[in-house]
Amino acid sequence: MTSSPNIISRKGPDLRRVFPVPAQPAPRNRLAAAAPWLVAACIVGYALFAGGYPATVVGFALIYAIFVSGLNIFMGLTAQVSFGQSAFAAVGGYASAILTTQYDWGWLPAMVAGIAAALAAAFAIGYPTLRLKGHYLSMATLAIGLIAHEIAVEWESVTMGYLGISGIPPIDIAGYELAGDRAILIMLSLCVAATVFAVSRIRSSRLGRAFAGLAGSEDAARALGIDVARYKLVSFLLAASFASFSGSLFVHVVGYVSPEVFSLHMVILSFTMLYVGGIGTVAGPVIGALVVSALPETFRAFRDYQDLAYGTALILLLIFAPRGLAGLFAALDRKPSSDRGKGGTAP
């Protein structure tokens, strides 16, 4: 560590001290750092072992983990607001569905095309939208999500409206179709691992520190030469591409897509996951997605109560535990304070 104040130099290691990455203090012992991953591994491991229905539930959770990780980049790391990420999941999902069923594309080019389309849409939408702040930004993004849903319903010649598109082929690798529960689960776990790796790299990179900078104070960030508008847009684009990726995965795993998949329910559900796991942390979205998906499934008799439970849980979390499970893990971390002086860096 240098002591010179070269805050915006090319290498810029000092930015980390100026803008400590929020909401995730450096873990002081290994167990606490590993705890969320152990929990996640246990849930996925159980599903792999059990197969069948638990595997399906955990599979959905993993798809959501990718979506929520993207949301977390925009909201947790950059402290912006978007209620409309479902729109980009819809772009990816419908691109994959339409290109593979009607134009006989392979799943990979279709998925890439979906991400490209989502990026283009996010660029066109983000450019005017991200100038807005506060409730204006909230409402504009909510409107974008709802417009996407309406378009999916109304543009029947392409999306088949409420009927939806069925018969979407599963993902195949080298001629081997990933159709079994366990094969899909392994594939999704790898996707989540890649996502987590990407997010943690982004978080500790120069880009991530710029995000943290404008999360802390836009004015201060601007004063330090961070191009606020550009980084906001980059954060939005990243979130949109993860959303599109998860949308594509969803349609291939389920084999069917309809507008209902990308409704307001998805928005509320993904926010619940984000807050349960802990907003602004790398592990939070994964843990949140797994826990939130697993809990209602253990009480399957109460299917009608699902949205009620999500909504209530979200309100209670926002009031009483705004840091979610990450706060719990952090508390676990605080107790054994023997090696406090070491001060490791965030993973």
């Binding site: 509320i268 926010f271 909504g311 979200l314």
Partner: peptide, 10 residues
């Protein structure tokens, strides 16, 4: 905002 939106759903 998120809390009131959740209240709406509840």
């Amino acid at each position: 905002i998120l809390a009131t939106l959740a209240a709406q759903i509840v």
